[in-house]
Amino acid sequence: MRTEEQANQAVEEYADLVRRLCFMRLKNREDSEDVFQTVFLKYLLYDGTFESAEHEKAWFIRITINSCKDSLRSVFRRRTLPLEVLSEEAAAVPEEHGALLEAVLSLPDHYKDAIYLFYYEGYSAVEIAEILGRKENTVYTWLSRGRALLRRRLGGDCL
């Protein structure tokens, strides 16, 4: 189990990253906050060591995405969300970027993850493949299909 200091440092370091990944994947604040805490709880319980800060960051990305998937599945099994709460999270976004965000959030999850990691976090396709445990070609396909869907919806160079 990690020390309190390590856990606090991780919250400080990765809170925004985890929050943004939850925002990209989940549709309401309650689930988002649940997953946020679950991720740091998993960190607290994780006994392994990280070779570098990059390795640690990749671990957080992977764990957050997996925890979001778990949350969506349990939400799907437990209860149906009313449609009006689906866009609750999107209210945090400035109006001028509403269309872009709406288009990105409507992408299938794999495309969304790849687009976010590439354009926001600045990872290369090779690095994304490593983080997500997928083949490089698969990531290239996700990126190109994601871009095509965004172009179709928003037109031009939307990113």
Binding site: F36, H97, Y116
Partner: peptide, 16 residues
């Protein structure tokens, strides 16, 4: 543009 759009999405002090 994506970085601009997500700039405001961050963990609040309260959540941390």
């Amino acid at each position: 543009q994506l970085q601009e759009a997500l700039r405001g999405v961050a963990a609040t002090q309260e959540l941390k």
